[in-house]
Design a protein around this nucleic acid. Structure first.
Lengths: 104, 104
DNA sequence: CCGACTCATAAGCAATTGCTTATCTATATT
DNA sequence: AATATAGATAAGCAATTGCTTATGAGTCGG
């Protein structure tokens, strides 16, 4: 099941940090490594996990591998949370405010 | 950090299942146990984890412990996801539809 | 007061996780 | 062709996780 993968993969703070960076801009493995304290293999392993959950896309170019976030893959997570929105009216009001601001 | 706790605690499918049941209605530990295959201590341990992340509330009554979901605790998760909504226009449109339907 | 009941906690264990170092593959540079 | 560079993969390891059984702490009914 994909929902389970998304939850499990995002449970790790290091992976969330990688995803957050890749949401800003596409980056290579060595770019990500440079911005981190963990080893290059650790970065590659995390990227493989993120990729497995569809949370990042890979673009190969020569010996470089460029990764970028694929926020659509967050859909299962959002849909899961949405099931409890019913019990959560004040949050809905805040969300409406956000959307209204986006319209302007 | 609380965001990290929420992610970590919800990463486990058994805990998500417990939370889902407790979102429907308040239940005692033995109620939850009866609806599950795992042992009573395992249920209690998962409930302790959920409670630690603020995801459930406990109400004691005699020898019974009644638990219910606290969906407000999902806020950090929603807020985290919201940061990537910018990159995700079609999802926003769907969400607007949902909110419009809720207004009627 | 005592046995039954509800739940939490303790201890132990196998499986999983996240990291490391070492190595391999592929591409680029000279 | 030889060397360097980018990244993935393998193997090993300590820490964490999720479960189990055993037991403990309260609470209720006879």
């Amino acid at each position: 099941m994909i929902e389970a993968d998304v939850f499990r993969v995002l449970a790790d703070p290091t992976r969330r940090a990688l995803f957050e960076q890749l949401a800003v801009r596409e980056m290579s493995v060595s770019d990500l490594k440079a911005a981190s304290t963990i080893s290059q293999p650790a970065v590659s392993q995390h990227l493989a996990a993120l990729k497995g959950a569809g949370l990042v896309h890979e673009r190969r170019e020569g010996r470089f591998a460029y990764y970028r976030a694929a926020p659509q893959a967050l859909a299962p997570l959002v849909e899961w949370v949405d099931r409890y929105r019913t019990f959560w009216p004040e949050r809905v009001e805040r969300l409406k405010d956000v959307l209204r601001r986006m319209d302007r």
